[in-house]
Amino acid sequence: MIRLHTVATVALLLVFGLWAACGNDPRARRADSELGGSILVSAATSLTAPFTQIGQNFTRAHRAVDVQFNFGASSALADQIVAGNSSDVFASADQANVTKLDDAGLLAGRAAVFARNRLAIVTKPGNPEGIRSLADLPAAGVISLCDLAVPCGKYAAQALEAAKVSVPEGRVTRGQNVRATLTAVTDSDAVAAIVYASDAKGAGARVATVVLPDSKNVIAVYPAVTLKAARNAMTAKAFVAFLRGAKGQRILKEFGFLAPA
């Protein structure tokens, strides 16, 4: 027999669940100024740290605005958007995924590059394996790389190919995004990873960074674009502009990104 307090508990959980689901929906709020409402920004995982701060700055500048982020591998985000996820802004770690959305006719304007990034090798603190360049990777232990389907994995493959270095696949653990790739070094036992310089900087003392010379490096470009499906096109455009503005650029630089060319 079901006891009364069990019923009460279930009911309470349901009520709480509904409250949590509805009460926090930013779209429920009304825009009360010219620039207002909320926007959903789907952004590459490597942008997690700077965008969180940029979001705070943007909402401080526009009090009626609320910015929500959806971070993931650019390729995964592009798939979500194609599948009908209603983002307002897409900030990708490569051009290819923007082109994919353009081909699908989902863009509401031209994409604008707002940042660039370099690749770097990260190792355990103190670099115990003595890794100096890409050429040292095949002889080391397990190497963490992004999956080939996501931008950071493509860039790493380009860099390795340019350096004529090949790491046996049996020693490569593939991260589903740049964060996971980095974690394999910081939290697990991967010897080294190829990640963005910005992520290497963000990892701080948890890793040692081996800088790749420009000649051996690959430069990632970060375009942002407003989507056709945007419910809040005005605010979305303002956010993209904010990225390219002085404040946005300063924050991106702080987190190790390069200015757009």
Binding site: A73, S75, D147, Q176, A190
Partner: peptide, 22 residues
């Protein structure tokens, strides 16, 4: 814990997840 090394630690769910991208 085991990472995602093809042929060594990449189980079917991991393969499915990565394949989902491509």
């Amino acid at each position: 814990f085991a990472g995602n090394i093809a042929g060594r630690t990449q189980t079917l769910p991991l393969a499915v997840y990565l394949r989902l991208e491509a």
